[in-house]
């Protein structure tokens, strides 16, 4: 995955909460307060801010996979890091290990819409949420199989999120197709906390939304919303 920060304005221009997060929540029934792809606002060296949409980094040397005592977190053959919530024992050592704060725990019975309860559970979409287990962004492997982009990439109004395949060296944001390796090198892409050696599979192209007309000094984004706060019987939400 490549995220072009030059095109991310935190959805200031559309005046909504970040649409990647919103689409992810809609698609995965991600329970509140989980933002599997979360748009952080970070300061820039010369003042002003940039927005950093942060999905699971799908590290190649994934600390969470290394420390899981029961192998509930694993690499698929394609390399995606998934969680088997039917095996997870809820020890949360993966949350301690993740240096990107990308893991979420079902502390109580998660608020989810009733339709989530009718889904067949699979680690690839993680619905319905299981109390006492860890969840996170799954890179939408089921969507890719049916030839669609992940929810976040589809939801992005500025087409800032590219999704691709390291094997075929190709990525797309739905509009254009790029040669992945060339796209990364030409734009001096970087990865979060490169120095930790986690080898993330999410790359960032530096920027602060300038390609879609955002000024770095325009701060703040709309808070994320969950449409189904109370739609599951006995559900309780919590804060992170």
């Amino acid at each position: 995955m490549v995220i072009d920060l030059r095109r991310c304005d935190g959805c200031q221009s559309v005046g909504k909460p970040p649409q990647c997060t919103a689409a992810c929540i809609e698609g995965h029934f991600a329970p509140a307060p989980m933002e599997w792809v979360q748009v952080y606002e970070a300061g820039l060296p010369g003042g002003g801010t940039q927005f950093i949409p942060t999905p699971c980094q799908n590290c190649q040397n994934a600390p969470c996979v290394n420390v899981c005592p029961v192998g509930a977190t694993f690499h698929t053959p394609e390399g995606t890091v998934l969680i088997d919530q039917q095996r997870c024992i809820g020890c949360r050592i993966c949350m301690e290990a993740c240096p990107y704060d990308r893991r979420f725990f079902n502390w109580g019975t998660a608020p989810q819409p009733p339709e989530a309860l009718f889904m067949d559970y699979s680690p690839e979409h993680q619905s319905p949420a299981i109390r006492g287990t860890v969840m996170k962004c799954d890179f939408c492997p089921d969507m890719a199989r049916s030839g669609r982009l992940p929810y976040c990439a589809q939801g992005c109004p500025n087409r800032a999120i590219y999704y691709g395949d390291l094997e075929e060296d190709v990525a797309t944001n739905g509009d254009e197709v790029v040669r992945l390796s060339r796209f990364l090198s030409e734009n001096a892409a970087y990865r979060l906390k490169e120095e930790l050696g986690t080898e993330p599979r999410v790359h960032y192209i530096p920027g602060h939304g300038e390609a879609v007309g955002r000024s770095a000094s325009r701060k703040g984004r709309k808070p994320t919303e969950w449409p189904w706060q109370e739609r599951r019987a006995g559900a309780t939400s919590w804060t992170r």
């Binding site: 029961v70 509930a72 095996r87 997870c88 024992i89 809820g90 020890c91 050592i93 287990t133």
Partner: peptide, 21 residues
């Protein structure tokens, strides 16, 4: 501290020696 104490046997069934736990 476990979120799923009912699955404690998984530690024996699927235990991974690479895990500090």
């Amino acid at each position: 501290d476990l979120g799923r104490p009912d699955r404690i046997l998984n530690v024996l069934l699927y235990g991974r020696w690479q895990s500090p736990l």
